[in-house]
Design a protein around this nucleic acid. Structure first.
Lengths: 317, 317
DNA sequence: TGTTATCTATCGAAAATTCCGATGAATGTG
DNA sequence: CACATTCATCGGAATTTTCGATAGATAACA
């Protein structure tokens, strides 16, 4: 039993004519006749009464017609569901997000707009340490990753730069430091610091820079969750250092430009040589558009990789 | 998309191995690999992630797997329903019954026993004038016909003799005639007669015989429905002539042997050169068995066709 | 770390299947 | 009664499926 045969059968059963059914099926009458007969042989019983030039469904034929209809409908439905995915009427996008990158206002905005355009597409965000993201891509646990630009180029991972974020000192708006236009690492190191652990790329970059300057940066509290860090900063006692993009939408805190100008290049990672669903490519496309449209554009040259990024201005008013 | 490909796909999806799936599907690994790829091409997207020697379902593959399962289940169900029909777990038998033959006790007994054995098989009885029955067979409105032996042999109709029924005079048990051992047509013609019209074979035979004897049989009432005739006979005023088999199970009436010995040969008609469902052949087989088993067997030679029948004894106690 | 075994993809050829057009038989129609 | 229509069948062409062998890649293992 093959779907092709079922199609022939259903056409014959509905038109009650092999000739007409063959036309509908775009095959020769002899072909349809043969295929129906073969189906009958396989089923072990005739589906049609042959009465001279007329045909008529047998009782079994009528019964089997229902089944054939159901099978073909299910097949149609399966194809339709896949087509719907292509048209972003279903499916999902799994987004890997490097811990420490945080739900930037850019990302939340893209998520919101994407959901407005394609409400049927489920968006799942998987937070993970940056070094884990390529592995998650390889396992197909995520479709794309937003992360800091990884140090080593990996041949099976496509990496496209998104924007660069500048590290800023973060203080509560009523903090004594809040009025400063800029600050340097040594000055910050004097204050009660809360920073992520060195498992996060942010911290590694801070430590690298401190070492280069011969400074010791010793946070009093280490915690990886950005929202916890911001919460503590908000209490007015603590000070932190975070990428500006991660706190653009946060109220009650002030970003102070770091004189060291530490840039964190952000990238989108995808699996190379892998089929990408339209839902995924569309998401990435929007992410890149939003980078240009919704952030104040300002060309910066990354001090790590030398590439030029479109980056948000540090919001120090 | 063909069912074969869906089978391959489902096996691959469940084992997550093309090699193992090929074993399950009884094909070479290369075959399965190719067919899955072709299915993917037709669907426009990959169903599996190929990761070195391992494979893994894509999101679309997982979705399509459900559809594939449903399609295969439906196909299995369709086959099962047909198989059930072959095993008499479903379906129906359409029985054409010549008006005037009536629901003989033989037939009711077979119906009862058949239903006991195969409660899922629906039995439909279509009463029609005897000459209509071959036409109903040709239209496949009925699967078999119980009728009087037709005069003309029709080449496309198989006719198998069942039993012969003898015409008897029918009177109420308290009727004055009830004690007679036998009676002849002339005597009956004196009484208030209720007979079927000459559209029924019974009546035609009675009239033929009367004409042969030079007697005029003029029923006071003509009515084709046998139960109505029996009802009228029961009122003690009316007398009728009916086949003995038609009244074997009726209480309150007495059958008196007709001296003319008019035999009505009963036959089963089926469409020649036509597939017969097991439900039908089984019914016919039981009908013939019951003819031998449940009626007192007595060989009689039919005066019409010269054939020898197994026939019930006239029950004149 | 090299070796081996295993898994999937691909290729060419063989086998099987589907398909077509022609033809024949049966049947309904004018 | 001629004619057109319809379905079944046949032989051969076209397509598809299948297989075995092999290559490439990778996981397991020594």
């Amino acid at each position: 039993m093959e779907i092709r045969q079922l199609r022939y059968f259903v056409n014959a059963a509905t038109t009650l004519s092999f000739t007409e059914a063959a036309r509908l099926s775009n095959v020769a009458q002899s072909t349809l006749s043969q295929q129906v007969k073969q189906l009958e042989i396989e089923l072990g019983m005739p589906l049609f009464h042959r009465m001279g030039k007329h045909i008529q469904l047998t009782a079994e034929g009528q019964m089997f017609l229902q089944d054939a209809h159901r099978i073909l409908d299910d097949a149609r439905q399966g194809l339709q569901r896949l087509a719907d995915q292509s048209e972003l009427k279903g499916g999902s996008v799994d987004i890997g997000l490097a811990s420490g990158l945080g739900l930037s206002s850019l990302l939340t905005e893209v998520l919101t707009e994407y959901n407005r355009s394609y409400p049927q597409v489920q968006l799942r965000i998987h937070q993970a340490a940056a070094p884990m993201l390529p592995e998650l891509l390889r396992q197909h646990s995520i479709d794309l990753a937003m992360t800091f630009k990884p140090d080593a180029e990996e041949p099976d991972i496509d990496c496209r730069p998104l924007f660069a974020s500048r590290l800023c000192a973060i203080v509560a708006e009523h903090n004594a430091l809040a009025s400063k236009a800029s600050i340097n690492l040594s000055q910050i190191a004097m204050h009660p610091l809360v920073l992520p652990s060195d498992s996060l790329y942010i911290r590694q970059r801070i430590d690298d820079e401190a070492q280069r300057l011969g400074i010791e940066v010793r946070p009093a509290v280490e915690i990886d969750d950005l929202s916890h860090i911001i919460y503590m900063v908000n209490s007015n006692r603590w000070v932190s250092i975070l990428p500006d993009a991660a706190t653009l939408a946060v109220r009650g805190i002030v970003r102070i430009a770091l004189e060291e100008q530490i840039m964190l290049p952000t990238s989108v990672l995808t699996l190379a040589d892998s089929y990408q669903r339209r839902a995924v490519t569309e998401f990435i496309s929007r992410l890149r558009e939003a980078t240009n449209l919704h952030l104040q554009t300002q060309e910066r040259t990354c001090d790590v990789c030398g590439e030029t990024f479109l980056a948000p201005q540090s919001n120090t008013e």
